[in-house]
Computed example of a mutant assay.
Amino acid sequence: MTKRALITGITGQDGSYLAEHLLAEGYEVWGVIRGQANPHRSRIDRLLSEVKLVEGDLLDQSSLVKAVDLAQPDEVYNLAAISYVPLSWQQSELTGGVTGLGVLRMLEAIRMVSDFGGSRTPTGRQIRFYQASSSEMFGKVAETPQHERTIFHPRSPYGVAKTYGHFITKNYRESFGMFGVSGILFNHESPRRGTEFITRKITLAAARISLGQQAKLPLGNMDAKRDWGFAGDYVEAMRLMLQHEQPQDYVIGTGVMHSVKDVLTIAFDAVGLNWHDYVYLDPQLVRPAEVDTLCANAEKAEAELGWKPSVQFRELIEMMVEADLRRASRIRRDEDEPDQW
C-alpha cells in the first residue's frame, strides 16, 4: 500500500528535499502551504505534477484539521517554523506562536482527525508524527558534543520555541501513545538555503563579489562554531525515524565543528579571493546572547537507524558557491534559466 505523507513547510529548504526523497521512495506526498502567494513556492514548482498542495497555517487550528483530514496521511512531518534566529528576537511572540504552539496545534489536529487515543486513520493505520527540533535548544551547552540526553539551555526566542515543540511532542507520545518523534538536527545547509542564513549569505557574497556585483560583506561573530551538514542527507534521517519500531528522539549531525571563518575561507578560495579583503565585522549583527559551540553526537542515529552523512563540509560549501555563481551569472546575463539546484 502506498504511504501518504503530509509536510508542513514544504516550500522551505528541508521541505523541498524531503518531498523529493519521499517521492523517490514511492510515497504520495501532500504539502501544507500558507496561501497561493507563498514567496518560496518556486522551490517545489518542478514537483507540482506529483505533489498535492493544501492550504494551512500553524497559527490556525481549523486549517490544520482540514489539511490532515483531507490528506489522511500515514506520516506527518512538521518542518514549518520561523527559523531565522535573529528574526525571532524581532518577532518573538510570533515565533512562539508558530514555532512553539504550532506544534501543539498540529498534534491536536492529528488527534482530532484520528481516533482520540491512538491517533489512527479511519483505515486503522497509525499517523506517525515528526517534529523538526533544533540544536539551538542546547544553546549555552552543558557538554560537547551534545547527545539526546544533554540538557537544554536555549539562548533565543527561536530556541525556546523549539524546546516547547520538542517537549510537547514527547508529552503527547507519553500521554496518548502517539507515535511522535523529534529529530534534533544540527545546522544543515544547501544551495536552497535562504539568503539570510550565514552560510548562504557567505557563498552568495563570494559569488557576487567575484563577478563585480557586490563590494563588501558585513558579518557578526565570525568565531562562532557549528556542526554543518547537507540538508539532503538530513531529510533521509527524518524518514528513517518514522520507520523505526519504537518512537524515539535522535540527534542528527556530522560530529565535526567548523567556524564561520572556515566557511569564509572555503567560499572565497573557491572564487580565487581572500576573504579578509572583503569581509568586516558589523556589531549590529552580533546576537544578544550568542551560541558559541554546537557539535553533534549522532552515534544513536548511526547505530539504530543506520544513518550517516554523505556530504563533507568542504564539498557542501563549494557546492553552494557553484550554485550561487550560476545564479549570479544568470542574473548578470538577464537570462531566465530554470534553477536545477
Rank of each mutant, 00 (worst) to 15 (best):
Q146E: 14
V321F: 11
A207F: 05
S190E: 09
D45L: 04
P154W: 05
F230L: 03
Q213Y: 01
T195L: 15
S49K: 13
K201T: 12
R226Q: 10
S119I: 00
L316Y: 02
A303E: 14
S134K: 03
K261W: 02
E322Y: 11
K162R: 11
D74I: 08
P288G: 03
H258R: 15
S175L: 14
K300D: 07
R193K: 13
M222D: 08
F197N: 06
S42I: 10
S62G: 07
F230K: 02
R332D: 09
T121H: 04
Y164D: 02
I168N: 00
A19S: 13
P73E: 09
M106W: 02
D14I: 00
A109Q: 05
H153R: 15
V141E: 11
V291C: 10
F176S: 05
D277V: 01
L48P: 05
D45S: 12
G255R: 10
K216I: 04
S16V: 02
E143M: 10
R192A: 05
Q213L: 15
S83T: 12
I127W: 03
I209W: 07
V181S: 13
F313E: 05
Q72T: 12
R208W: 01
G117T: 06
I198H: 08
N38E: 11
P157F: 05
A303P: 00
V160S: 07
E304S: 04
A81Y: 07
D223S: 13
Q72S: 07
E189C: 08
L104W: 09
R105F: 00
D74E: 13
G9C: 04
I317W: 06
R41L: 15
F167T: 10
A296R: 09
I202F: 10
W228K: 03
E304D: 13
M241T: 14
L59S: 07
P191V: 01
H276E: 14
K52I: 12
V321Q: 11
V85A: 12
H244M: 10
M178A: 09
M178G: 03
D60R: 03
R332A: 15
I209G: 07
L264V: 06
Y84G: 00
H276R: 15
G159I: 00
R287D: 14
F176N: 05
P288H: 03
T163D: 04
G9D: 01
E25G: 02
D249T: 10
P309T: 11
F313K: 09
A19W: 03
T8N: 02
